[in-house]
Amino acid sequence: MDFQLTDDQRALRTGMRDLLERRFPRTRLRAVVDGDAVRGDGDAVRGDGDKARGGELDRALWRELGEAGLFALRLPESAGGVGLGLPEVVLAFEEAGRALLPGPLVATELAAGLSGSLAAGAAQGETVVTALDEGGAPVEHLASADVVLALGPTAVEVIPAEEVARSVEPMRSVDPTTPLHRTAPSRTRLAEAEQTGPADRTGEAHQATQTGPGRSGLAARLRREAALLTAAQQLGSASRTVELAVDHAKHRTQFGRPIGSFQAVQHLCAQMLVRAESARSVVYAAAVTEDPGDIAAAKLLADEAAVHNARDCLQVHGGMGFTWEADVHLHLKRAWMRAGQWQSAAAAEEELAAGLVSTVETCL
């Protein structure tokens, strides 16, 4: 089997990178971080301390991503999509992670793959969808979302964002570009849906089968896809921090020579590259197989690559890496946040362990 990217896949990745470099350059990222972003209607949004930073989603950019087909890559052409597969979505999300593109990308992509008007709006970038998972993980970008995709153990339900907003409270986010809201580990309405089937107030509810280790069903499939797409973003961030570290090592001089000529710095950069490429192999393979164990391994390695590469990149940058003006801390903070989303290290290890036990039992 040939795992090399095809010409079309390379073109997709290049096109996504060009789009983000044009519409979300570093200056735009810094504007979001510093709270000086511009909304889709053209009005400036100046931050009011930490509370406002990263809180305003650029709806014009979101619609442009939809028009470019980011959220419709897997939809059939007959439904207005691009007709590609999960590997192509992974390539696009890798570029989004490289650019530190903010917003509930994963939830919107998941919603675009469902049925009904919600899917159409999400695919076109007209509807911003965030997610509420049963485990009580924080909800991101709730203030900018139109609807919330709520995933329980067996039920998948769509809830208006304003309804969810009444039962949560804002919390301080380690990532200045990702506002978070804290919610209870369980929700009464979703728990009732688990027993009686989703009581749909929006016309867009879905029922899934019972889930567990090695699980199947709609809710479980959405979680696996979310974990893989999050891993793809982590991979993009890990690759970008390699570039930042190498570029700085080439141009920063100490004792009359580039710091990249020192063996200690070379070792750090080499270890970063190994982590990123190891994660890339597993993430790409998981996109092809869609196996739960492969996805768990991909999330584990991608999280490790993103977090440790950002730390080593900061080390290469030295004192300036700790400053607010440097971008290194943004990759580290985003990597920390993503590492706890959809599938934590402990959950991924449990998935892999369950797979190993199942293999052993089959052989006995």
Rank of each mutant, 00 (worst) to 15 (best):
D50R: 15
E162I: 11
T154S: 14
A37F: 07
A119H: 07
L228G: 03
G15A: 03
L101K: 03
L73F: 01
S239Q: 15
D247L: 11
Q266G: 12
V168K: 03
V282W: 00
T202K: 06
G293M: 10
A119C: 07
D48M: 13
W324P: 13
A302H: 01
D2T: 10
P185F: 00
V164C: 07
F93A: 01
L105H: 01
L273P: 10
D18P: 07
G125V: 00
Q234Y: 06
D36L: 13
P198R: 10
Q195N: 13
R338V: 09
M272A: 05
V288K: 13
A52Y: 11
A270N: 11
R23T: 14
L229H: 01
A72F: 01
A305R: 05
G125R: 04
A161G: 06
G203W: 07
G212I: 09
P104E: 03
G355M: 05
L151P: 00
A208G: 14
T130H: 08
D175M: 02
R63M: 09
G116T: 05
R221H: 12
T188K: 14
E277A: 09
L20A: 01
D200L: 08
R10E: 11
L301N: 05
G113A: 06
L352Y: 04
A11K: 12
A345S: 11
F71Q: 03
V357W: 12
F71R: 01
P179T: 02
R28S: 10
E163V: 14
M337R: 13
T241G: 02
G197F: 02
V158E: 02
E225A: 09
D303P: 08
L86P: 04
G212P: 07
L222S: 01
L142I: 03
P179H: 06
Y284A: 15
L229W: 03
E225C: 09
G103P: 00
I295S: 00
T209G: 14
E169W: 12
R334V: 07
A232M: 01
R223Q: 08
M1D: 12
A96Q: 06
V158Q: 05
A353H: 10
P153I: 08
V328C: 11
L273S: 15
F71P: 00
S115D: 14
